[in-house]
């Protein structure tokens, strides 16, 4: 089990990560989701031992890794753009870690063949990695990391360079392999679809802090903060002002507020509006634009709100929508 305790790191004097703690259990895939520059890659590099935290500890199975150099950690890291060794063949790339462990020729041969089969690259052994397609390179990178039977697998934006359809396919295979091998994994991405597909648990990283933690379903239905709701594009986020106790005034009307937060009168709050037939907020608006989106239509309304509908309304048509209102914390 990987355990991070109160990790902090600054970059050029500014805090990059502050007080980050989480655990990854055996067989679990934890996904760090955040915008670029939020310190995700640095976090992975610290777990790998390539950089050291300024404070806090990284433990694996209860052992503090502060004194363990990267080559003795037995962690596999799949890099963004893969970082394959351009001077080696597919086989030698996959066998690199085994060779570093001074395993016998036959052991290396056997294990490398095994992982190349796992990622469907049997027959590619003697190819140059520079001649492979992006998807194939990605598999070599995965095979290379798997070959050493790592105690932990880390992925740093591993699918960033692939196109949409290939991404879905590789993601599927990756999920399969992770379940099969039961290796705990930390997966870093800025792409929420990737995160929601692969993760058992999602950690939302913003300004160097973990602002939300939960299963994909939990995070999606209750993003918790205005920033998270906007980042995940969960629905309409609007501003409101507390007019009196338990009431909030928005440009679409006054609604009752049901939340655990304590608000003062006059305070500004972020609100998430989710369409619901039983919702308390009734909005009458004109349809401004209709966008086709695969199996549904995104309908943009006058006033800046949007909803998704199965049937496309006409532009200019008046429409009435009921919204649930969820109060968001200001992070």
């Amino acid at each position: 089990m990987l355990e991070l305790r109160h990790l902090s790191k600054t970059y050029e004097g500014k805090p990059l990560l502050s007080n980050v703690s989480f655990t990854v259990a055996d067989g679990e895939t934890v996904c760090l989701l955040g915008a670029s520059g939020s310190g995700k890659s640095t976090l992975l590099r610290m777990i790998a031992g390539l950089e050291s935290p300024e404070s806090g500890a990284i433990c694996f199975d209860g052992v503090d890794l502060a004194q363990t150099p990267p080559h003795l950690r037995d962690f596999g890291l799949v890099f963004q753009d893969y970082a394959l060794f351009p001077h080696l063949t597919v086989f030698d790339n996959a066998a690199f870690g085994l060779k570093m462990r001074d395993q016998s020729k036959s052991q290396i041969q056997e294990r490398a063949a095994e992982v190349l089969k796992l990622v469907n690259l049997t027959g590619f052994e003697s190819r140059k990695v520079t001649e492979l397609s992006g998807g194939e390179q990605q598999r070599v990178a995965l095979a290379r990391a798997l070959a050493i039977r790592p105690r932990l697998l880390m992925f740093d934006e591993p699918l960033g360079a692939l196109d949409r359809t290939l991404k879905d396919q590789v993601l599927d295979e990756l999920r399969h392999i992770l379940h099969e091998t039961h290796i705990p994994a930390v997966y870093v991405t800025h792409d929420q679809e990737e995160a929601f597909t692969i993760a058992d648990r999602i950690l939302l990283l913003h300004n160097g802090r973990i602002i939300r933690e939960g299963t994909p379903a939990e995070v999606w239905s209750h993003p918790g903060s205005a920033w998270a709701a906007k980042f995940l594009n969960v629905g309409n986020v609007v501003e409101g002002v507390i007019s009196e106790k338990r009431k909030v005034e928005t440009s679409f009307g006054v609604v009752d507020l049901r939340c655990e937060h304590i608000h003062a009168v006059g305070e500004q709050v972020g609100l998430l509006l989710k369409p619901s037939s039983t919702g308390p907020l009734k909005v009458n608006a004109r349809v401004e634009d209709v966008l086709f989106q695969r199996d549904q239509f995104k309908v943009e309304l006058a006033g800046g709100l949007f909803i998704h509908l199965k049937e496309a309304p006409k532009v200019g048509e008046p429409i009435q929508i009921h919204f649930d209102v969820e109060c968001l914390s200001n992070v």
């Binding site: 590099r45 790998a48 080559h71 890291l77 970082a83 060794f85 001077h87 690199f96 990391a145």
Partner: peptide, 29 residues
């Protein structure tokens, strides 16, 4: 030289000396 190649070699179990003999020097041939 891509610095991540060295990082990759390190995570795969190469000690600093092996990073030179197996990655950097061959690439700088």
């Amino acid at each position: 030289l891509d610095p991540r190649l060295e990082a990759a070699a390190r995570t795969l179990g190469a000690n600093p000396l092996k990073v030179w003999t197996h990655v950097i020097l061959p690439l700088l041939r």
